[in-house]
Design a protein around this nucleic acid. Structure first.
Lengths: 107, 107
DNA sequence: TTACTATTTGACCAAATAGCCAAATAGTTG
DNA sequence: CAACTATTTGGCTATTTGGTCAAATAGTAA
């Protein structure tokens, strides 16, 4: 792989990496339902608010979500619904795995 | 988030994490074209063969690919084509970004 | 059996990531 | 302006990940 190609794959990996965290998956799925402010997400997630804020920054930099400041609050919303397709793919794998584990158990 | 839910999201994150690496994206896209042995992939990628092997193990554990040993060689193939949907989503984001950067440049 | 090829595994180090706390920033309200 | 609320940023440590080398494993062939 030459340098140019490597950079291209790295850029794509960075985007995927943004979804590769339990909290960030949760956030994306919440935002599917509509915009949420940081404090609402923080309450659902339960981590320190600075931690939640950093996760949001990662999703935003990757391009999955965008923010809108209104008064004191900042509302985040999903702007790449295609992220959900992939989350579905991960779910599908988990389901297959569960079925397989069950098959083993019943042997 | 309770413990059970957290585990569920972590399991999904582990699957997505498997795709969150330039080399592993490359591998999945190669396997889309058909099965490949480790040595073929190693040659295309250029990293140490043990490195490639570890990337393959990660994709296999996640459930994206499977292996078939025939003689000395081990052939890997893709068994979750839905992975490609997501890789497409990452591509789309990159394209949007490029269009946006261009717009800024032309202002 | 010995030598050879393909691949995986383990030990190790360097770099990246995650989470928490404290401090900084920005907007609001009295 | 001072006090307050919502959020981000910086600094720190602990954990995870990625890569390399050497050794182990497995199949083949002489």
């Amino acid at each position: 792989m030459n340098k140019k190609l490597k950079e291209y794959y790295s850029a794509r990996a960075t985007i995927i990496k943004a979804l590769a965290h339990p909290t960030r998956i949760f956030i994306v799925e919440q935002l599917e339902k509509g915009e949420r402010c940081v404090c609402e997400l923080q309450e659902m997630i339960g981590d320190d608010i600075s931690t939640v804020s950093k996760h949001l920054a990662i999703l935003k930099n990757a391009g999955f979500i965008s923010d809108d400041k209104r008064g004191l609050k900042i509302f985040y919303s999903l702007n790449m619904p295609c992220a959900l397709n992939f989350l579905e793919c991960a779910k599908k794998i988990l389901k297959n795995r569960a079925r397989h584990d069950l098959a083993l158990t019943c042997k």
